[in-house]
Simulated assay, not measured.
Amino acid sequence: MAIQFKSQSDIGKSLTRSKMILCEFFEKWHYFSLELAVYNTVWWIGNYCHPLVELQFWAKDRITIYMDKYLNNSILPPHHTPTTSQNTTILNTIRSTLKNKQPREIVDNSNYKIWIFWWQGEKAMPDLVRGCFQQVKSTNDNVILVTQENIRQYSDIPDYIFRRVEQGEISFTHLSDILRVSLLAMHGGLWLDSTCWIPASIPDEVKSLRLISPRTKDQPKMPFWSDSRWCGWCSGTNLVQNPLFVFTRDFFYSFYKTRSRIPFYLFIDYVYDYAYRNIPEVKTMIDTMPENNINRNKLHFLLNEKWNKQEYSKICKNNWVFKLSYLNSATL
């Protein structure tokens, strides 16, 4: 059974993207502010119109300034666990995280879990997603599929977030952002998006790193908060209570207690970047993370090409994870 990826016409793409950008504009205006809605719209226009990439850089910088001010001045509700007795700002949350450091357990290779999320379970997976999942299981141990049935077993996500999911206020995409930092903060291990292809066993040296995510060094600046320093679709740690994931988890739990919409698409990358700029330990971990998986996107662009074992082996050399996509696919 093969997967064929359909190409949408240029006119179709333009109409789809225009509708999305327009809907985003009114949503951000309604839930946040007209200022943020304008910056977000400009960012999307620059994203899709490559000659206007400077606009995207401009919008990213304005969104960052806006969100820093928003976070630094926002009063957040108490964490869902009784760790705080009164409302606090995000900066105080950071200070508390750093002040109340606890000994961090190091996860050894034999207990290093690989986390994959599909709400409806394996039987409901599209063909490409199921193929990726079966591949990682065939080449690695301790692979855990998190579903609707067991999500509470592995995470401490509060009930009010699940209620928002059930009511359609929080999408499964946004739930996966919350889930990945919850799992990594509690257990360590490696998070893989469901469309990650793992050609072989993940190297032991990867599992021994305090922080790991696909990274490319010495790249031209990009108008994204990750800026080739990490990839949100694949991230891991051998530390339980890694400060990056603890901070992001605690922030998400507080944020979603009063909100059901994110301010912009790459929100989790912004939060990682905020932690990078405000928590020295996080900055050190990201700065010292080795370059890895520089060919991580190459298989995606070959999905409709004729199978070439030699080319596949060449691409997989020194690369242990690839990002694919099941969007616009059909089974033939």
Rank of each mutant, 00 (worst) to 15 (best):
E122M: 09
A59C: 07
T237R: 05
L302K: 13
K309I: 11
S74A: 13
Y160S: 00
E24V: 09
Q4C: 10
A37M: 09
N292I: 14
Q153A: 11
S14G: 08
L34Q: 07
S33K: 08
S325E: 04
N308M: 05
P280F: 02
L266R: 15
V38K: 09
Y39W: 12
Q135E: 09
W225N: 11
K6C: 01
S226V: 09
G236M: 04
Q310D: 13
K19A: 11
Y270H: 05
V321H: 07
H174M: 14
I161S: 11
W233H: 13
W29M: 13
P158S: 09
K306Y: 06
S74L: 04
D159Y: 06
Q310K: 15
L22Y: 12
F264Q: 10
I157Y: 03
L184A: 04
W233K: 13
S226I: 01
D177M: 13
Q310H: 12
Y48N: 11
N47F: 15
H50P: 00
G131N: 10
I114C: 00
D227S: 12
N297K: 12
P77F: 12
C49L: 15
N292K: 11
D156P: 03
G12L: 03
N140W: 11
I114W: 07
Q134H: 10
P280R: 10
K123A: 13
F57G: 07
I65Y: 13
R259M: 02
I144A: 08
T331D: 08
S182K: 05
Q219M: 12
Y39E: 08
P78A: 04
R62P: 04
S171K: 04
R261L: 06
I212K: 05
H30P: 01
Y312M: 04
S213V: 05
S313P: 00
I90H: 09
K99P: 01
L34P: 00
R130G: 01
N318V: 03
W58E: 05
P103M: 06
S208C: 12
D250H: 04
Y312V: 04
Y70A: 01
D141S: 14
L211G: 08
C316W: 08
I90D: 00
P203E: 10
L91K: 14
N319T: 06
I161W: 06
L128Q: 08
K13V: 02
D61E: 14
L332I: 15
S226T: 04
L209Y: 07
G232E: 05
L244N: 00
